[in-house]
């Protein structure tokens, strides 16, 4: 029994991260999978959510903004609003243009937000980040396994809510317009759908979900710093979505679990075989491995593990059913 506790805590810890990544991957799936929007700034929008929720809920900091002491749930809502606002500004500037201009602009947003996180000490605490981010129900459950399991349950509930909401959204007439725009924008415009407006809505909602993912992350770890939101995070979320299968919300969740498992396993293996002094190189090799997996998936299995279910019966859609079971 005593041996079981460490394993159980590791599994809980691992699953918590997987669930948080799954939330972020769902946000990206709405943008890329259903609307064909290429967002290379995932890490930036996640960072906005994480910092917003932390600032709204944390105790007063000596030299940066804070001390509002709002409940964690309010922090989560604030995170979504703030990420949505940033997305609105970016979307208005970039969504009218060619597709890959959005990619370049969102990349720029992530780089700029990274600079702000690093340098705006009064807001973000600078390179040392923000500490003592409250963990919900900590006074009840302590800091051990019980709290981790409770947070896993909360994160799972959030993931479930996001999943159901997004499923309803993409199965609705709104979702059909998004897919129509993705497949053939001219045709959708000819049917009287304003592509720009739909794309903007999809982009903003997707970024709000990413911001929520960032807030979940902040309150789980209890400490955030600029290096948590490097481009590598964007890359991980993208790989999760591509591996799982873009255009399918269950695929996005499965991909998050699969890639995070692979990431954790490869990290453990590399730490075992690479000597202590060369650990930094080992971490680099880990990223190369994930890059190769992404490229291989794109070439040989572009639909991912699960892939999009195309052609659900029209009658089922209109009653709001969730389409084909299994």
């Amino acid at each position: 029994m005593a041996d079981l506790i460490p394993i159980l805590s590791y599994v809980t810890f691992f699953l918590c991260f997987a669930v948080i990544f799954a939330v972020m991957a769902l946000g990206l799936n709405l943008q890329w999978g259903f609307t064909g929007l290429f967002n290379v700034g995932v890490a930036g929008f996640v960072a906005v959510g994480a910092y917003t929720s932390a600032i709204l809920t944390a105790p007063p900091y000596p030299d940066s903004l804070g001390g509002f002491g709002l409940p964690v749930a309010a922090g989560w809502v604030g995170a979504m609003i703030m990420s949505g606002l940033v997305a609105l500004v970016v979307g208005v500037a970039a969504l009218r243009l060619r597709h890959d201009y959005l990619a370049i602009t969102t990349f720029g947003v992530a780089v700029t937000l990274q600079l702000v996180a690093l340098n705006a000490r009064w807001l973000t605490g600078g390179p040392f980040g923000l500490q003592f981010i409250p963990k919900p129900f900590q006074d009840l459950l302590g800091t051990g396994l019980a709290w981790n399991m409770a947070y896993l349950a909360m994160s799972l509930a959030v993931l479930g809510l996001v999943y159901v909401a997004l499923e309803r959204l993409v199965k609705s007439p709104f979702g059909r317009v998004l897919r129509a725009i993705r497949e053939d924008e001219t045709a959708a415009e000819a049917l009287g759908k304003r592509a720009f407006s739909f794309r903007l809505q999809s982009f903003v909602i997707g970024c709000m979900v990413m911001g929520l993912g960032g807030a979940l992350y902040a309150h789980f770890v209890g400490y955030i710093a600029p290096e948590d939101f490097l481009p590598i995070l964007t890359f991980q979320i993208w790989t999760m979505l591509i591996v799982g299968g873009s255009g399918n919300n269950r695929g996005a969740i499965a991909g998050a679990l699969a890639v995070w498992l692979l990431w954790s396993l490869s990290g453990t293996v590399l730490r075992q075989i690479i000597p202590q002094s060369e650990q930094a190189r080992g971490a680099a090799l880990q990223i190369v491995l994930i890059g190769v997996i992404l490229a291989a998936m794109l070439i040989w299995r572009p639909r991912g593990l699960v892939g999009e279910v195309i052609g659900t019966p029209a009658g089922k859609d209109e009653k709001g059913n969730t389409g084909k079971k299994a």
Partner: peptide, 25 residues
């Protein structure tokens, strides 16, 4: 050969991180 231009952008993003980290290795 198959696939749209935007898939090439994702692939190039993956290639960028792989190339940089290989160099770092």
């Amino acid at each position: 050969a198959h696939g749209t231009a935007i898939v090439l952008v994702i692939a190039s993003f993956g290639a960028a991180l792989a190339m940089r980290n290989l160099l770092q290795f």
